[in-house]
Amino acid sequence: MESYYPDQTDLAILKLLQREARLTYNEIGRRLHKSKSPIIDRIRRLEKLGYIRGYVALLDYELLRECMMAYVHIQLKDHSGEALELFQHTVEGYPEVLECCHTTGANDFILKVVTSSLQSYNAFLRQKIDRLPNIGQVSSSMVLAQCKHSTAVPF
């Protein structure tokens, strides 16, 4: 893969797309005082190089019926590279896991998990997390309200 760091125009495009991914090439060009053609080329390059991994709609969890979110703090017993990789690979396959972060501090991983109910969350813990090899301690923080939800990277 070619080595490339986005210039100021690329960064401006990324900022716009983070806020409004449905902007047309024409609208992005208008806002940045550029024509459509170079905007298309730049966006395609940013996609090809992995700076833009995809486009999604951000949902309001509180408006969705039967939807609850929790952060799961996990300590592993074994910290070898193989054990960490196995854990990560396994939880990546769980649709309930929206995010998996390998962290420093008391916990090895923090998972952002969404399920339809407390009962389904309990089933997720018992049938998936608790059955994984190498699990030490598991603690959960249930989300009562979400005051901010963003995926935009500040740069």
Rank of each mutant, 00 (worst) to 15 (best):
R45Y: 02
L118S: 13
N134Y: 03
I13Y: 00
R126V: 09
E82M: 14
A123P: 14
R22V: 11
A83D: 02
M69I: 06
Q75C: 08
D41N: 15
S139T: 07
V72P: 00
I110R: 00
N134M: 15
E96R: 09
Y94E: 12
M142F: 13
A21Y: 01
Y94W: 10
R131K: 15
S37H: 09
M142G: 07
L16I: 03
K15Y: 02
A21D: 09
S116L: 04
A21F: 01
C67S: 14
G29L: 01
I74M: 04
L125Y: 05
H73I: 01
L46G: 03
D108L: 02
L132H: 12
L59S: 10
F124N: 01
Y121R: 02
M68D: 03
L49N: 05
L16C: 06
S80L: 14
Q18A: 06
H102C: 13
T90N: 05
G81R: 10
C67M: 12
S116R: 06
S37Q: 07
L16E: 07
P133N: 09
V91R: 00
R19C: 15
S80W: 06
Q18V: 07
R30G: 07
I52H: 02
A57Y: 13
D78G: 11
R22A: 04
N122G: 11
R126Q: 10
Q88Y: 09
E82P: 07
S141I: 07
R45F: 03
L86V: 15
L84S: 08
F109W: 09
L111P: 00
G93L: 13
K77I: 12
L46S: 01
Y25K: 09
K77S: 10
S117Q: 03
L118Q: 11
I13C: 02
A123I: 15
L23P: 00
T115K: 05
E85K: 09
Y51E: 10
Y55P: 01
N26E: 14
Y94L: 01
E96V: 01
S140K: 04
H33R: 11
S141E: 13
K128P: 03
I40T: 07
C101V: 15
S140A: 03
Q137W: 15
H33V: 14
D108C: 02
S139L: 13
A123D: 08
V138C: 03
L32A: 05
C100L: 12
